[in-house]
Design a protein around this nucleic acid. Structure first.
Length: 468
RNA sequence: CGGGGCGUAGCGCAGCCCGGUAGCGCACUUGAAUGGGGUUCAAGAGGUCGCCGGUUCAAAUCCGGCCGCCCCGACCA
């Protein structure tokens, strides 16, 4: 595949743009910073959405839908929250042909609306925990947008929960991080993630603790792919989310919020893509296998049709490409750009031997497969690819993560990957210093990679990197 | 808001310095050949050269003003 696109570090932004366009994922929208997600890009998002939604439900949360518009006064109820979001709000001042008495804000996130709703729904300790989630679009007027990674309008899932105790809320926020997000990234996207606490500087506006998953892209930069916040009693106090406890006293709830967005699609592209375009792990691929009819012959067409049917029956998401009016090379390249994991080529040469050719997208490896063994071979290849892609990504992360002890070494290492450095050697002043090199603390971890209970724990490690 | 750059066909660009019939690649339409890694040939359609003004016999090109957009930094899932 001669020079279709290149993923060399210096060309990475251009490579990313090319993949978006050539794999037909998304374009810029007419309003600056917005994006148009094309059918194939949306199909990938639907896979992501389905997998995350299933995990959310397993964690006990239920889906609801709250309004797009928020009265401006709601946002003002929580000082830190307004301050954090006001620069990027889209505000509607006119509607129905006249100026509104109170402007309405297009939601940048829905903590305030959920606060209002929870205050009504929670009366007694028997109503707790209240575990809610919504799939919605939100708007944040970003200064420097980038398709999928940071767009003015994006699709996401935001979970909002209310609990009786601090411990219960903290435990749930951590559970979401582990059981919903990390599990999804590792087992579906084959994307190893660093999980940990955000520093005070990087914390969500209004939260008392922010947890995050950070993924490494192939240019060595970090992308925050999901977050989970403990909101303490901040929003419970601002919105009067109270309950009567078992012994009759009136108490404020402890709330959490957590989210993941269409940004994940960008992360998927940048973590697994190569010079041939997208590479999709089988579990997230909308099309897992394509049966490609090489030449225009009736026997081959019949075999290809039958194989596609068999694969479908075996539970493989399969497509038949018998569009022989387009050239073989063109079609092969198109499916590779789209990252389809397995390609089955049906041509006269191998058919003469009672075989077809199976090609893996991740390695490019080709093998001959007997006609009656195709479904088994494809299923096996998909399973192997899922594991191999995770192992490959893990090796990449290991090779691009440096152990350092000093700030300047950390800043240097972060030009090409991640650095692990004792948090004691960084601190808030060190964060400022790193920022001058375009580097930030992505998260704080225990030495074993688990999530610390506070940033004051001894021996905790800062993961530092350049970030998107 | 600081620092760079760009506005010419649907997309990507050349032409501008040195004024003289509006060009190239991709995509699109038609026809033919080809067909195991982005096929080839032929024909065709498509333009207010960002806008306004000036200089000139003549402006995409020179001069003045305006507008829009992109990239790098600050903000962020």
């Amino acid at each position: 595949m001669p020079g279709v696109i290149t993923s060399q570090r210096e060309d990475f932004p251009q490579w990313y743009q090319d993949v978006l366009a050539k794999a037909e994922l998304a374009d810029n929208g007419p309003v600056r910073g917005t994006m148009v997600i094309r059918p194939y890009g949306y199909a990938i998002w639907e896979r992501i959405q389905g997998e995350i939604d299933r995990r959310i439900k397993q964690a006990g949360a239920e889906n609801v839908y709250l309004p797009l518009f928020i009265p401006e006064s709601y946002l003002r109820k929580e000082a830190e929250h307004v301050e954090g979001f006001s620069p990027e709000l889209a505000v509607v001042t006119h509607a129905g042909g006249k100026e509104l008495e109170e402007p309405v804000v297009v939601r940048p996130t829905s903590e305030t609306l959920f606060g209002e709703v929870m205050a009504k729904w929670v009366q007694s300790y028997r109503d707790l925990p209240l575990l809610l989630n919504q799939w919605a679009n939100v708007v944040r007027w970003e200064l420097r947008p980038r398709v999928f990674l940071r767009t003015t309008e994006f699709l996401w899932q935001e979970g909002h929960t209310a609990h009786a105790t601090r411990e219960d809320a903290a435990e749930y926020a951590l559970r979401i991080l582990h059981d919903v997000y990390r599990d999804f990234f590792v087992n579906v996207l084959a994307l190893p993630v660093f999980i940990g606490r955000k520093t005070r500087k990087e914390r969500f506006a209004g939260a008392v603790n922010t947890l995050a998953c950070e993924g490494m892209m192939r240019d060595g930069k970090a992308l925050q792919v999901a977050t989970s916040h403990e909101l303490g009693q901040t929003f419970a106090r601002a919105f009067d989310i109270t309950y009567t406890s078992e012994n009759g006293t009136l108490e404020h709830c402890w709330t959490t919020s957590w989210g993941s967005s269409t940004r994940i699609v960008g992360g998927l592209i940048m973590a697994h893509g190569d010079d041939g375009g997208l590479r999709l792990p089988p579990r997230v691929a909308p099309v897992q296998a394509v049966v490609l009819l090489v030449r225009d012959d009736a026997d081959g067409a019949e075999v290809a049709r039958r194989l596609a049917e068999e694969l479908g029956a075996a539970g493989v998401r399969v497509r038949l490409d018998s569009d022989v009016a387009s050239s073989y090379g063109r079609r092969v390249t198109d499916w590779e750009l789209k990252g389809v994991p397995v390609r089955i080529e049906v041509g006269p040469r191998e058919l003469a031997e009672g075989k077809v050719t199976l090609v893996r997208r991740d390695t490019g490896e080709r093998s001959g497969v007997a006609l009656d063994g195709v479904a088994a071979a494809v299923t096996e290849a998909l399973g192997r690819m899922q594991n191999d892609m995770l192992a490959e990504a893990e090796a990449f992360v290991r090779e691009h993560t440096a152990e350092v002890t000093g700030l300047s070494d950390a800043a240097d290492a972060a030009q090409a990957g991640f650095a692990r450095i004792p948090w004691a050697a960084v601190g808030e002043s060190g964060e400022e210093e790193l920022a001058r090199h375009g580097v930030s603390v992505r998260c704080l971890q225990r030495p074993d990679g688990s999530v610390p209970a506070s940033e004051d724990e001894p021996d905790i490690v800062a993961i530092v990197a350049k970030a998107y």
